[in-house]
Design a binder for these strands. Structure first.
Lengths: 323, 323
DNA sequence: CTGAAAGCGCTTACAG
DNA sequence: CTGAAAGCGCTTACAG
């Protein structure tokens, strides 16, 4: 690989001059600058970023920690992130949680985003710093140089339930996701609180335990069918489970939405292709990614006025899996 | 950020000893090694990878160039790649084509994979080298230190058409994707050749021009409907177009597969959720990613016996959008 | 077993 | 305008 030395030798100047010429600094005559640039191009010279960074510190690269390659729900978010990063003249690298320590610690990145539950709170807390601000998508976490942008699950559920109440539903079931997750907790709380505000009690046996997978939704619905206890509306903590629920009902000849309404959360791509199309809560994924990335750049540009934990508002997509 | 110097000072040893101790070299007494390691941990010291790489060259990191975040067809491939990379003890970074030059040229990676049409052949040809082998997913390209792993489109089409002929179909239409792409060319050629081998002429007006989008498939089918010229089977160059085709037929009250069979290519997630489920050609995406990555590691481990352009075999998924 | 020194490829005051 | 030199944080012969 050709280095700055090689170029300097060929151009018969010092390496300082090569560096100065190539970086557009003023202290080099126009004539030599031109010559140097030409020779560099001719020799196919590209500065070694790593050596450069060792001095300069700012790398103009940010990282996204992500490894859930099996859930395409996320890709729209990544697109938003990437577009924002490019717009700001930075480069984005995506790396899996296995590698994140290496990249967080090595001074190669100016900032990071985390969309990966496998990254521990401890790691984030211990590495976030003035030189490495971190933006989180998948959790809220208090700490210096740590920022969160999460979906407002509670508000979304509030909106949904109020909408359903207005439509006259009085009898609700909830298919929950993995128990301790923030998403599940907030979504369920939003449902329960809102019902109770309207004096509709949520009967605890109508809480079905799932784990965010299609299969667990399928099993929950099977249970409803077998125990012959099917509510007017089944609200699921995510779309995948709603898909499973619908599948079980269809198999049993139970009509959606005539006999039962089914509602999801996330608005994954499949949601609008299903028969019937799934009513769900749409998180504006592209905007989410873009917004979170923009916060990182606000911080990097030292405009960090007062960035509080941020909430993204989700919207209900009424489709025909519900009345 | 704490450096090797800080650790050395605190431990009262030279930086050489710190380096040796931390890298598990033999030339340091067990006692001091232990002390150094402890102090390093205590100080929260992590070696700066960039500085290290400046000397060592091997970074144990490979890159995947990818930016089609809107096509979730690819994510299964990435999963395969990532699993293989982790298995080999390397780290993977994914970067968009905007950034690829930066990463290819800067000595930060030991090898690269390309799954991004936006990367030019020129860039690949000019950067692939002994120190930076490159594996391609999306094209075949002759060159030193360049390897390709692509889907055998032709063979897949051959299999499909032979299957269809055996089922008795005699009348075919093809909805093509973007004209000049290797995928489209090979898929169409596979169809045409195989038909002709069985003495079935492919009528050129039965070639409909699309661009791999759902919309273009929809429009192609509209055209068939309006001109009242619907073949027994519509083979599409990818699933997205097949989805569009099915949509148009459904809207027109044309039954699938009773009135017409529709077939796709790719086996995207949606394919098996559609009504009717889409018959398509399934490229084993996970294996594809894994296999291509493994080739990169074969090269990196200098086992490059004789790695020729590699073809991945795709399989037909007979579902009920065809008879 | 231990440490001083050279060097990886750059940038950046600084002196001339 | 130009170049010698120091230094970024490491590793690795080499001498002791």
């Amino acid at each position: 690989m050709v280095s700055i030395k090689d170029v300097a030798k060929k151009a018969n100047v010092s390496i300082s001059s090569v560096s100065n010429a190539l970086n557009g600094r003023a202290n080099v005559s126009e004539k030599t600058r031109k010559r140097i640039i030409e020779i560099a191009k001719e020799m196919n010279y590209y500065p070694n970023t790593m050596a450069r960074n060792l001095k300069v510190k700012r790398t103009k690269t940010v990282a996204l920690c992500f490894s859930q390659f099996d859930r395409n729900f996320y890709f729209e978010i990544i697109k938003g992130i990437n577009d924002c990063v490019v717009h700001n003249g930075y480069d984005l690298i995506i790396c899996a949680h296995h590698s994140i320590e290496k990249f967080l610690r090595n001074g190669f990145i100016d900032g990071a985003m985390v969309l990966d539950k496998n990254v521990t709170d401890e790691l984030i807390l211990s590495t976030a710093s003035e030189e490495l601000p971190i933006v989180l998508f998948d959790r809220e976490l208090e700490g210096e140089n740590i920022y969160s942008v999460v979906v407002d699950n509670y508000l979304a559920m509030e909106d949904l339930i109020n909408g359903l109440i207005k439509k006259g539903y009085t009898n609700y079931s909830f298919v929950g996701g993995v128990e301790h997750t923030q998403d599940n907790i907030e979504r369920f709380k939003g449902l329960k609180d809102t019902l109770e505000k309207s004096n509709i009690e949520f009967i605890s046996k109508n809480y079905y335990h799932g784990d965010f997978t299609e299969k667990s939704g399928y099993q929950a619905a099977k249970l409803m069918i077998i125990s012959n206890d099917i509510s007017e509306v089944i609200v699921c903590a995510n779309d995948n489970m709603a898909i499973g629920v619908m599948k079980a009902f269809k198999e049993a000849g139970i009509r959606i939405p005539e006999d039962v309404s089914v509602i999801g959360f996330d608005d994954i791509e499949l949601a609008s292709y299903l028969e019937p199309h799934l009513t769900t809560i749409s998180t504006p994924k592209y905007e989410w990614g873009m917004y979170a990335a923009s916060i990182l750049f606000q911080v990097l540009d030292e405009e960090k006025t007062n960035i509080k934990p941020n909430k993204i508002k989700a919207n209900i997509k009424w489709r025909n899996s519900s009345r």
